[in-house]
Design a protein around this nucleic acid. Structure first.
Lengths: 214, 214, 214, 214
DNA sequence: TATGAATGAGGCTTCATTCAT
DNA sequence: AATGAATGAAGCCTCATTCAT
């Protein structure tokens, strides 16, 4: 009953391409609107409108509100982790400082592109949504795997004798906390320049602290 | 016809005391429930139940949901600011390091007692609640004045030559970010000891960074 | 905190009385509207309007649509069963025929007053709603207990030698089926008189059948 | 340019045959799903899936949901009526009892094959679907013509002096009600044997009732 | 003609807020 | 002042139907 010339391997049907585009648009829209209006304050309809589709369409792609959010989070998080993995990979054989720099640069760049996304993450980190659903759990709404990347970086730094081993267990959290400050800092400064400008201060602060060498 | 003796000045009527107790109970309940269920996910009724009164009563004390939240935030924030002001006051004439230590200790202690509250703050920092009203903006739902305390501390440190002036503008945010890490760190560690245990690592990290002295 | 003069025993608060009245009104309205528009075609809002309350009020009394329906069914069914129990009780010591007559009379009267309700039951008997929920199961959406009443009647008839024991297992279903015909018959006749008029024919038919004595 | 030989008269095009097959499949699927999930609870998509076609295809065959239901009902009802007409026809000149037996047998057999369909009918008898449209009314969703068959049978029985004329107007409804009991009975018995087993009890009951000859 | 994604009206349900007692 | 039922706007989600491919 269903006959159809088999699709060229490696080629995507028009339909498939459309489907992916729509999904992209929805995630994009979701990221924007969730960030603008807050996770709790976002109406599904606003997202679908922003994406240029009808509500029903959104529901053809995502089971419900939560799944959309989870998918969105997972997607972006995966992107960041991928970048950080590449950083780690690319720094093999090079001095740790280079990896550290690359890590900071990559993260700040990512933050810059996804300030919105990051703000969602910060929310999610601490909020228990009405009914924290299975879906949300599954997707790991936190930063667990990003944290793992930071740990890897820190471990290497310690192993190579660049970082003090003393409180090493805390460094990943402190590193990420510092990066989080990047966003917070924006809100308390008058000249909200590009985040990448924070690279040097951050490197300096993380490695040497705020204390004056005497 | 009953006559009522005028209240002794400086004395609180029974009625007044009851009123305050109820208000306290409501704020307490609010803190708990908002923290447990998230700001967006909390139902007014849950708060009133937790406080042991009817919804209507809650509305006798607070104009609406937002005002309750704002009052709650303002209350706790004021507490912290008060403590930090005392720290600053009490350290007059003493070396900066002592003030810094006291600052850390006070903040970690406060965090410990109000992890819940702090989690609300972290949320509020980035989230726009359902209908972010003028009232909420007015009440300054953020950490602005706490940030100001941190600025004061940092300024003094710089002035006294203890802190590097180079990126001083960032230090307050970094300091607070570090403290925020205290809560985050909890979630990624197996042994979630008391936050005060983080005092030494934090002092060390803030002053000297993670880099190994060469 | 909650002080209140204890209610006179056996007396209902005004509130309690209001509450019961509202519940009554809702059930009444539910019966009407479900019957008029069909179970599937009924909008909750129509029911609440008919009852003269807001939608929200309905939800203060019943968990959801299903629970309302279940409660409604249970209520009416219980009424009928109660009546039939009384019939059985009242006929103790009297000849079976009298109980039979009373059974028919009671049922036809009930049917008359609740044609609407009965039509719902007939539906429910055969329909599997979208998600047959636990609630529905719990309430026994069928006629099980009415069927039990019929069985009791039939058993006695057989025991007393008034009914042929041959196909006795079928009689309850046949008896109820016959009564159901009462409603169906209405739709195919031009003179839809009172159902009670069907008493004699039904008695005659059940006891002697349609065949002519030869 | 292709030329197509004109279709042999009386022969069906391949296309026509395919069309009919699909239509059949859709009706079949409709019968199943409507019966399984209830008329109100059935989603068009489920039907099309069951039939192995896309939703759009279903809409190429039936104007809308209602038309499908109406067509389905009409189809099955026509089948039953046809069988009953044949029964009537075949019994010409034979004693009434034979026609009666044949009627019962035919109906029970049909019921057996279409318990599902019959359950829809029973529903339809009393339910007004979501938007009871004119179309549905038009199609006569009830049992009117089956009722007519029963009337014909009863009339003949009365005419031939086999049935008591007294309450003859009720007999058709009672006859059908009795048959409906066949399905209901299933739900209250532990041994849900084939419906045809009910033939003798039904004949006996209809003709002689449940009362014991004294 | 078949497909299945897109559409959006419409139903269900929640919950902040009001108000009569 | 306390109570808690009533209110109804507003959000979520479903699904019959359409339509471009």
């Amino acid at each position: 009953m269903k006959k159809r010339s088999p699709p060229e391997p490696g080629t995507k049907t028009l339909r498939e391409r459309l489907r992916e585009e729509t999904e992209q648009a929805l995630l994009e829209a979701g990221e924007q609107v969730f960030a603008e209006q807050g996770v709790g304050g976002t109406r599904i309809e606003d997202i679908s409108k922003r994406a240029g589709v009808a509500v029903g369409t959104l529901y053809n792609y995502f089971e419900d509100r939560e799944e959309l959010l989870a998918a969105l989070m997972a997607r972006r998080r995966a992107e960041l982790v991928k970048v950080l993995d590449e950083v780690s990979e690319g720094a093999r054989g090079k001095p740790w400082h280079e990896e550290f720099d690359a890590f900071l640069r990559a993260t700040l760049t990512f933050l810059e592109q996804h300030r919105r996304f990051f703000s969602i993450l910060v929310q999610g980190e601490m909020t228990a949504p009405r009914h924290t659903s299975a879906a949300e759990k599954r997707s790991g709404s936190g930063l667990d795997d990003v944290h793992a990347c930071a740990e890897r970086l820190v471990r290497r730094g310690v192993a190579e004798g660049v970082l003090k081993p003393e409180f090493a267990a805390l460094y990943p959290a402190l590193l990420l906390g510092m990066l989080r400050s990047a966003i917070v800092h924006d809100r308390y400064t008058d000249s909200p320049g590009p985040l990448i400008a924070l690279m040097e201060p951050f490197r300096d602060f993380f490695l040497k602290g705020a204390g004056k060498k005497r």
